[in-house]
Design a protein around this nucleic acid. Structure first.
Lengths: 344, 344
DNA sequence: GTTAGCACTCATAATGAACGAGTGCTAAAA
DNA sequence: TTTTAGCACTCGTTCATTATGAGTGCTAAC
């Protein structure tokens, strides 16, 4: 464990580096208020911290920059709660008075304010289809055996999917089947549609349709996840203003990543409760080794249903971003709940 | 008008610059096959061409680069039809055997092959909703007066929109109304829905519903264009490999542009028949002054319904890209037609 | 009209000196 | 024993200088 003085200096170095993006020297640190040692003392401590792996030196005669281990320690033990600035509070106030009539809008708005406040790239992973509830199912025949399935959830999301109508099943039978689902399974969580249909309602369903097995296949087709439609991003170009991405190569790697929605979804997916911070290598993905990801889950009906996250350089203002994410995730959960409490 | 020799040399300069991206000197040109003058003669001709505004000199002792006027002349008068290379033909063959079951897929595939072949950023503007025909309309109530309207067209596109149900109109009335539209206006072009409903069917409709005016308002809500969902892009990062976008500022300007879908739609929209080439300033938009846009319309049922385009640096391989766009636009039209001929 | 020759221009790369921020070490002070 | 001041040393950055060479424009000869 580090001594109090070591912690103090590590903290000072990181705080300085976060704003300056330049290696910080001993003199700079010793001049900070709250630090009453001479530059020489600071130098000694910094040398110790470097030996322990919390700091790094780009070259012999440069100041120190935090290592990833340093950031990790900083996030875990040194972080102080963020003090909201006046501008933040104003922006948040404006945000709170904007009316949001539905989920999509709420997602986009929240995303936008998040990237405005942080100046980084931000993501919101929409509610998983399987978590939400059936409101309406419709099969629209197009031609031959081609049709479009349309599934509306209680959150107002519309999921569409091309499907092939199974051979031998008539349109009117499909209609009866969809009607049955709509009346008997309205409000049923999407994830439980199939089990309930197969186990509990099979008998009853027989009275309406013939080809139960084929129709169950159809249901599978309909429910086949469309994960890439769940991701919302904002502020993609904002991150390019960060000095660490002035390098065209890095920039390109990051933009390439963006085209691969599914990778990002995976990156965000395993979010547990509370705010998560993943620093550099902890992301296990080449393209974001120089990035940190801060994310938090948001809730609907007490259940975590999606993730909200920020991607920025490792040199990130963790205190601030964590504060903002935490607040917005909670706020978004609340919005979701109130958005549907009145309607259910 | 230019003399044959002037044309020959302008042609040679542009061709060289297109691949090298460096100012081309008189010696380089004189050494090309097909050019049998000495460097000195070439120099004289180049001086003339510069005076006429077809070439430019970045600085006194550099070679010449084509001006925008030069490119324009090149495109209008000097272009030779592109000779397909073996790799191109292979890629195209692979493309032609890929099965495409529906429009969305065809768009994405065509987009992808286009950006692969050209190495630039490519766009496809999906069929305008107003050009396609009504297949199915459904209103799904959510809560209070909130509902989702779902409109399926003959091209299999699903357009959804949040709508407010007018006060005083019951759900069952809306259902009757939707049913009426579905049965009486099936196959009607979207753009003609409202006029026909108001002019020809008003009387008949009265038998089914009460609040005709409010329901017509609802129709307006539903049809309110969602233009930003029509644009498909591909190869956004490919263009960053072009040397002219190594500059971070330009890059950012271009990426910012990308976030503004509607601007791009406007940029592509006024496409007439055949291939269009817009060079630099001809685009009337700050961010793409250093870019050229080559676009062509594609057809459905003999009508131009959308645009397919390429955005690249002014120094573009016009011959090649025009060849590719022309081919793919025609190909895409054909695919669209066969995709629906069998089904109607 | 065309070409060879030549002086001239100017961007680019390479070189190296001056600078300065920052370090590590040592010896003195607390 | 801990802290601090002093000092030599390192190394990236900046700036001016120079050399290089590609390319031009002009002139005179072919």
């Amino acid at each position: 464990m580090l001594t109090e003085r070591q912690k103090l200096i590590l903290w000072a170095v990181i705080n300085d580096y976060i704003v300056s993006a330049e290696p910080v020297g001993s003199r700079t640190v010793s001049k900070k208020k709250g630090i009453d040692f001479s530059a020489a003392t600071v130098r000694n401590v910094m040398a110790d911290l470097e030996e322990m792996g919390y700091l790094e030196q780009p070259h012999t005669s440069a100041g120190r920059i935090p290592s990833q281990k340093g950031y990790r320690f900083y996030v875990d033990y040194l972080l102080k709660p963020y003090m909201w600035s006046k501008q933040d509070l104003i922006a948040l106030h404006d945000f709170h008075v904007t009316r949001m009539d539905h989920v999509e809008q709420a997602i986009k708005q929240t995303n936008s304010i998040l990237s405005q406040l942080t100046n980084y790239m931000t993501f919101i992973l929409g509610p998983k289809i399987t978590e939400s509830k059936l409101k309406h199912l419709q099969i629209v025949p197009l031609y031959d055996r081609s049709a479009v399935s349309i599934l509306v959830t209680d959150t107002g999301h519309v999921y569409q999917q091309r499907v092939k109508v199974p051979e031998g099943v008539s349109l009117s039978e499909i209609e009866r089947w969809a009607n049955f689902l709509n009346t008997r399974l309205n409000g049923c969580p999407i994830s439980k549609l199939k089990p309930i249909l197969v186990k509990k309602l099979a008998e009853e369903l027989q009275r309406y349709v013939e080809h139960i097995e084929k129709l169950t296949n159809l249901l599978d087709q309909i429910l086949r996840a469309q994960p890439d439609e769940r991701l919302y991003t904002s502020g993609t170009t904002r991150i390019l203003e960060q000095p660490e991405f002035q390098d065209v190569e890095k920039m390109k790697a990051l933009l390439d990543l963006l085209e691969e929605n599914e990778v990002i979804i995976q990156l965000l997916e395993p979010a547990t409760e509370g705010v998560q911070v993943r620093i550099g290598y902890e992301n296990h993905l080449e393209a974001v080794r120089d990035c940190s990801i801060i994310s938090a889950s948001y809730m609907f009906n007490g259940q975590p249903v999606g993730t909200i996250g920020v991607l920025g350089p490792i040199r990130m203002d963790y205190s601030r971003v964590i504060g903002i994410i935490d607040l917005l995730a909670k706020d978004f959960s609340k919005r979701l709940d109130t958005l549907f409490d009145c309607g259910e």
